[in-house]
């Protein structure tokens, strides 16, 4: 397996007045291509900070983030923007679809930022929403909206999918459907999927589990035989 993401001695500090908060404290890890990674930790441990740094929404205080050989920590704002456009597919807890656009348009929107030929309908089909193509986000249920958001993220064929509590706003049954979809993306299509959650059960389904606490890596476990999401006890 190729290593495509590497964190080397990453530190992130937030200053508020004289007080310095260490949100990332000397973090090191690697992620391989096509891996299904779960990042676990209690609230405030630094999960979201890690995801923001990896997603190019925030910059490190020191250390290196290497994605496909590129040093993300050296990127300018514009380079970060095009890094996000090409490499990162975000999936948010609250979907963040553009309410003005239909499901299909939300996906085809990606044509404007990446040079990839996107067949919106077939992508929607792959998340089982072909029949809802012309509906607006407000006309869709939460689970449907999250599936559109996954479709939007994968449509541009990013290096990685970054999912921040993707099931946080959904009931458990719908949540399983979504997670199953994400695991499929990883297993069958070779997409690197990184999920941040505080739900420890998901750990059994992951190829790699990174636990963090107080901004530090607590443990990195590699599951030789990850279970299917649908087989887990929820």
């Amino acid at each position: 397996m190729n290593t495509i993401i590497e964190f080397k001695n990453v530190n992130k500090e937030y200053k508020s007045g004289d007080h310095i908060l260490k949100a990332m404290d000397n973090v090191n890890f690697t992620i391989d291509e096509g891996e299904f990674v779960v990042i676990l930790g209690p609230s405030g441990a630094g999960k979201s900070t890690l995801l923001n740094l990896l997603g190019g929404l925030d910059t490190v205080t020191s250390g290196e983030i290497v994605v496909k050989g590129n040093h993300v920590e050296n990127f300018s704002d514009d380079e970060l923007t095009s890094y996000r456009a090409k490499n990162v597919g975000f999936i948010f807890q609250f979907y963040n679809l553009i309410p003005n656009l239909t499901a299909l348009e939300n996906i085809e929107l990606m044509k404007d930022i990446v040079d990839v030929n996107i067949d919106g309908l077939s992508v929607l089909d792959s998340v089982g929403l072909k029949n809802h193509a012309d509906q607006f986000p407000s006309q869709l249920s939460g689970g449907e909206q999250q599936r559109v958001s996954i479709a939007r993220a994968v449509a541009k064929q990013p290096t990685m999918l970054l999912c921040d509590e993707p099931t946080g706003a959904l009931d458990s049954k719908t949540g399983v459907l979504i997670l199953n979809l994400l695991q499929d993306m990883s297993n069958n299509k070779g997409t690197t999927v990184i999920i941040v959650t505080h739900n420890a059960i998901l750990a059994e389904a992951a190829d790699k589990v990174i636990r963090i606490k107080n901004g530090q890596i607590e443990s990195i476990i590699i599951n030789e035989n990850p279970r299917k999401v649908t087989d887990l006890e929820w």
């Binding site: 997603g55 553009i98 309410p99």
Partner: peptide, 16 residues
């Protein structure tokens, strides 16, 4: 604001 932020996260340039 929220929509603009989403678009920005998705990778739309500030100039756009």
């Amino acid at each position: 604001e929220r929509e603009v932020a989403t678009l920005k996260v998705l990778g739309f340039k500030t100039s756009f």
